[in-house]
Each structure stands twice: as structure tokens, then as C-alpha cells.
Design a protein around this nucleic acid. Structure first.
Lengths: 237, 237
DNA sequence: TGTACATCAGTGAACGCGCGTTCACTGATGTAC
DNA sequence: TGTACATCAGTGAACGCGCGTTCACTGATGTAC
């Protein structure tokens, strides 16, 4: 009879610990050499085991990479969701909730720049992310969407400022997308959400991948100002 | 006496050709294995020479990488500048000129996704870009700035739509930045330009690094719509 | 125009290092009777 | 409680491959007299 989850054998406990240590070592190696430089042999070295022993824990290097990606998405998703739901329902205001969620994302990215690069940087050559990564991958975005969707559901969205209209075909696609994620918002709002997400993401890449090169000294202020504008464009108050 | 530039010796001609072939092979290898997978030995193999011969052309792998980066920035800068200046002065309108420039950038990125990744993706581990890359690196952005700066210079910018104000310190920094690049525009406009550039960049990363995952089917339409909004926000007409 | 010399592209071997993955094995831990 | 057996984490050696860089060299191309 297999051991019940409450009663873990020493073997099981050790296995979990070492697995966690391998993942931690992998994450720190990610930071030093990038995803392309992640090597099973050097993980083994770090933990004082022989390289082939790693295969007891991960069937291949790609499987390890997938695990790292999913865990990182989940970690980011969690902080984003926590920030987003912390502001839900209370009187704080939707714009403040939006800002807090975006800031949570930025702060995670700054604390984990290499995880951020793994998730949102150039694809790792020779590695194709399996479908398991899709679900966790949209969590961070959905945390932002939730702020807007809930504001829309209770009619708290301001009338959007006028601007160029969406071309018809694109509006149709975006309406379909809204339905897919189960958000009851207009195509116009979906467009603004997509724009907001890519904007946020672009700004963070810019900051983390050092594209600023000293052009902007206070990245946090620029980020906050930009996010405030996005909230305004979305009609959050 | 060294040969004059007009009279090239066979040796010089061969040298230039082979150098170009090496760069071309490097670029194609970039596409297959990414920057981290770029290898001098396999370049040599591809050209049928011995690995050490490559050192006649580039002092090190990093020097090659730097050359690739600068060339890519210059290529992108060139198409952006061409699109930007093609619309200058004629009656086409500033917004159209802005759109054309952005589209030129996107089209180059789509044609050269791996160069794009090299320039704007996650940094190559173990490689620090030298200062020579800074100048070429800002050319693409300046091509976009030019559109706005010229419109501002002849008073063709519309009054910006109202939105959250910039915090004072940030406004100060941005005014300094405007002075540095020699553009006579307000801090508010600089902010919108930065936002526009990171937006554009984020949208392209999103598209090229496959973050969309089938969420958006017509990336071009979304891009055009987004860029039109950016032009609107900047007051271009 | 012919000859001696200098330049320099490309060779081939070597140094010292890395990698992912497989495989037969040992020996401790866990399980069933 | 004690013993026989099964599980499985970790070993050590090997396979077959990759890499950047250095170095003394050969031999064709180019230059000066």
C-alpha cells in the first residue's frame, strides 16, 4: 500500500527536498548564464551528485526548463492575483487596484529578472514550450483583465475618451477573444486591454533588458505614470 | 604605398567578400540557434575553412557579435529613417508618416525576427554590448522622434487630450532627455514618445516571441490600430 | 621586366574545457508476510 | 518482531559530440628596388 500523503516516508521527503534544491540551483544558474546556459551537469555538481543522478528527478533538460517556466508563470500569476484581489470590493477604486496589480508585476519582474527573461524574452533556441505552459502563462494577464471586467460588470467604467475607431474585422476578432476568456467587455475594451498589456510588458522589457541606457533614470516613476494613463484610457476610476 | 581605395588588390577584394560571407553565415546561424548558439567553428565549417582561420577576420566571438548587432541596428535604422523621411515635407500628413515609419519597423522585424531578438530580446549571457552599439541603437527611435519633432517645430501638433498629469520630478527628467537628443518638444510629448516607443516594441516582442498564442489572429491589424492611437495621443494629424 | 623580400590568409594540431544522455551497478530504504 | 524481497537514489564509466582560442607553419599574393 502506498504511503498516505500525510505520512511521508523519509525517501519521499528527501526526494521532494532534493527536487526543490535542484530547481533552486537551476533558477540561480538561469540568472548567471541564461536559459541557454542552463546545464544539468553543473546542477549536479552544485548539489554534489553525479550528472546522471539528475535523471532521477527530471527526464530531460527540456522537462526541467518547462518546470521552471511553469513555476515562474505561477509565481508571477500569484503575486498579480493577490494584488488584484486585495483591492477587490473595497472602496479603494478601480484605478488604484489596477495600479497595484501592475506594480506587483513590475516588482516581481525586478526581483526575478531572469525568470522574466525566460517567460517574456527571446525564445530559448531549440526549445518549444509545451501546451502545459499556456494555462499558467495567461494568469498574470487575467489578473489585470479581472480588474477591468469587474468594473465593467458593475458599471463603474467611465466612457472611453474618443480616438480612432477599431476597424470592423479587428473588432470582431477581439469580441470573440473576450468571449473566450469569459470577460463581458466590449471589443473596444479588449483592444485597450491588449494595448495595456503589451505596453506594460514592453516597458518592463525595456527596463530589464537595459534598453534605456541611462535615458530614463527613474524607471519606477515612468512606469507608474504610464500605468496611470492606461487606467485612464480604460475608463477605470 | 598602400593601395588607393579605388584600386583594390585581389587580396583586399577576397578579404571583403569572405568577411561578408562570414557575417551572412553568422546571421543565418543566429536564426537557427540564437545568439547563444552562434559558433565560430560552425561558421568556419560552413565556409569550408578551418576554425582558426576565422580569427583573421574577427578577433573574437564577441567582436563578431558586436558587428552583427551594430549592422542590425543600422539596417533597422535605415529602413525607419527612409520611411520617416519619405513622408517629410509633403502633404501626406504627420499621422500617416508616423504610421509608415512604425510599419517599416514592424516589417523589418518580421523579415528579420532573429536580428530583432538579438537587439531587443533577452541579453546574451556573458556578453556585454560595448559602447559602439549605443549610437546605432537609438537610430530607429530617433526616426520616430523626428516625425513628432518636425510636426512640433511647425506647430502642427494638436492639443493633447487630457489625462493624468506627469509628476514633477519625472517631467523634469524628461525635459532634460528632450534637450539631450536635441528635440524641441515638451516633457509631456517626450513622455508620450517614450510610451509610444515601448508600446511599439512591446507589441512586436509579443508578436515575434509568440506570446499571442493564437489570441490575436491578425497581428498587423492590431499593430496598425495601436499605432494610429499612439499618433492620436501624440497629437499628430 | 625581374628578383628579393614582406605580408598575411589559411592550415593542422593541440589545449582544456563543456555538454546531454545511456547503462549496468551498488546499497540503503521501504514493504509484505 | 524478524526476514525475504522489491524499490529506487545515486555511482561511475562511457559515447559522441560541441566549443573558443593559441601557435608554429606553408605558400600564395603584393611591393620595392
Amino acid at each position: 500500500m502506498p504511503a498516505s500523503p500525510t505520512h511521508k516516508t523519509a525517501r519521499e521527503r528527501a526526494r521532494e527536498e532534493i527536487r526543490a534544491e535542484l530547481l533552486a540551483a537551476a533558477r540561480s544558474q538561469l540568472a548567471e548564464a541564461g536559459a541557454a546556459g542552463l546545464s544539468l551537469r553543473s546542477l549536479a555538481r552544485e548539489l554534489g551528485m553525479v550528472s546522471s543522478a539528475v535523471y532521477r528527478y527530471f527526464p530531460s533538460r527540456d522537462a526541467l526548463l518547462t518546470r521552471l517556466i511553469i513555476d515562474a508563470y505561477d509565481a508571477l500569476g500569484e503575486v498579480a492575483e493577490a494584488a488584484s484581489s486585495a483591492g477587490a470590493g473595497d472602496g479603494e477604486g478601480d484605478a488604484a487596484r489596477w495600479l497595484a496589480t501592475a506594480q506587483a508585476i513590475r516588482s516581481w519582474a525586478l526581483r526575478h529578472p531572469h525568470d522574466f527573461a525566460l517567460l517574456y524574452g527571446s525564445p530559448v533556441p531549440g526549445y518549444a514550450a509545451p501546451d502545459d505552459t499556456v494555462g499558467p502563462g495567461i494568469r498574470p494577464a487575467l489578473a489585470l483583465v479581472a480588474v477591468v471586467a469587474e468594473a465593467a460588470a458593475t458599471d463603474r467604467l467611465a466612457e472611453p475618451a474618443s480616438g480612432p475607431a477599431l476597424p470592423g474585422p479587428l473588432a470582431g476578432q477581439l469580441a470573440t477573444l473576450a468571449a473566450t476568456v469569459g470577460a463581458e467587455v466590449s471589443a473596444e475594451t479588449v483592444a485597450r486591454l491588449l494595448i495595456a498589456w503589451t505596453q506594460l510588458f514592453g516597458l518592463l522589457s525595456f527596463e530589464l533588458f537595459n534598453q534605456t541606457r541611462g535615458m530614463v533614470s527613474d524607471n519606477g516613476a515612468l512606469f507608474d505614470a504610464t500605468v496611470a494613463r492606461l487606467a485612464h484610457d480604460l475608463g477605470l476610476r
